[in-house]
Design a protein around this nucleic acid. Structure first.
Length: 264
DNA sequence: ATAATGCGGCGTCATCTTAC
DNA sequence: GTAAGATGACGCCGCATTAT
């Protein structure tokens, strides 16, 4: 859909689940861009003499969708779960690429940093580590992680004993038994005795659980970070639209005055 | 000084989404 | 269909601010 009224144009793309992405193009001279908005390339794309902003439109609960039963169902779906931030950001055609496991994100100063899901990379000699600690790098893990962190990258130290178990130091002094299943530790060559007995099975189960919790912990942190970023993005859009609204109101006022003068 | 309150972050669980 | 990732919901905790 496209609407061209006066100096500006608007295109609406139907997104998923009641979300529409509205592309609004208005002349450069009709918009004053605040620095904070310019710092966020997801908001404004410049095309010649026009600035294009995108407005996410989320259908209100009672809006339009309530026309029939299928719409009611759709509405329930919307209420049940909003689309993921990844999806929303993709819909916005944002430079914030959320592709597969290589999510990107925006840092506080507007710079985009590489981020994403837990990515384990082995460093050093991955042979049985009775000779010392090995490290795993977790890309874009939270700085508040229990492990050592440097600017979005968390280093997890571990040691592998002669029994094939991996040990992760806890609190710098304690060493907690922790075996990383081979299928889950990407890029890490796992050695160790085969696990078959019921006791080993239960140990394996609890280790799997621990690993799942660890990964989910990291995922939750990442999700919160993305959510904050998303909210920040929306706030920026609000600022843009308020500014645009103000400018248009002033323009309208000026045109009215001009018209009245001409009429008198 | 201390209780009350609000806020933000965290860990976990359950469930949904996505990729294969 | 399944495994792994993403995210909403919940409860907990620590910290800052405010009221008493």
């Amino acid at each position: 859909m496209s609407a061209g009224n006066g100096p500006g144009t608007a295109d609406i793309e139907n997104g998923t689940r009641g979300i529409s992405v509205v592309h609004v193009s208005i002349p450069n001279q009709a918009i004053q861009v605040q620095p904070v908005i310019q710092a966020n390339p997801t908001v404004i794309h410049s095309a010649g003499n026009y600035q294009t902003i995108q407005v996410v439109r989320v259908a209100a609960v009672d809006e339009d969708l309530s026309s029939d039963d299928s719409d009611a169902k759709r509405r329930r779906e919307i209420l049940a779960r909003r689309p993921s931030y990844r999806k929303i950001l993709n819909d916005l055609s944002s430079p914030v690429k959320m592709e597969d496991d290589s999510n990107s994100s925006q840092s506080q100063d507007g710079e985009y940093v590489q981020g994403g899901t837990l990515q384990l990379t082995a460093h050093g000699d991955a042979t049985p580590a009775t000779q010392g600690l090995q490290t795993l790098t977790m890309t874009n893990a939270s700085p508040t992680s229990a492990s050592n962190s440097t600017g979005g990258t968390t280093i997890v130290q571990y040691a592998q004993g002669p029994d094939g178990q991996f040990y992760i130091p806890v609190g710098g002094t304690n060493v907690q038994a922790y075996q990383i299943p081979g299928s889950l530790a990407q890029g890490v060559v796992m050695t160790g005795s085969p696990i078959s007995s019921p006791q080993h099975m239960s140990e394996e189960g609890s280790r799997k659980r621990e690993l799942r919790l660890l990964k989910n912990r990291e995922a939750a942190r990442e999700c919160r970070r993305k959510k904050k970023e998303y909210v920040k993005c929306l706030e920026n859009r609000v600022a843009v639209l308020e500014n645009q609204n103000k400018t248009l109101i002033e323009e309208l006022k000026a045109l009215k005055e001009l018209y009245c003068q001409k009429d008198a």
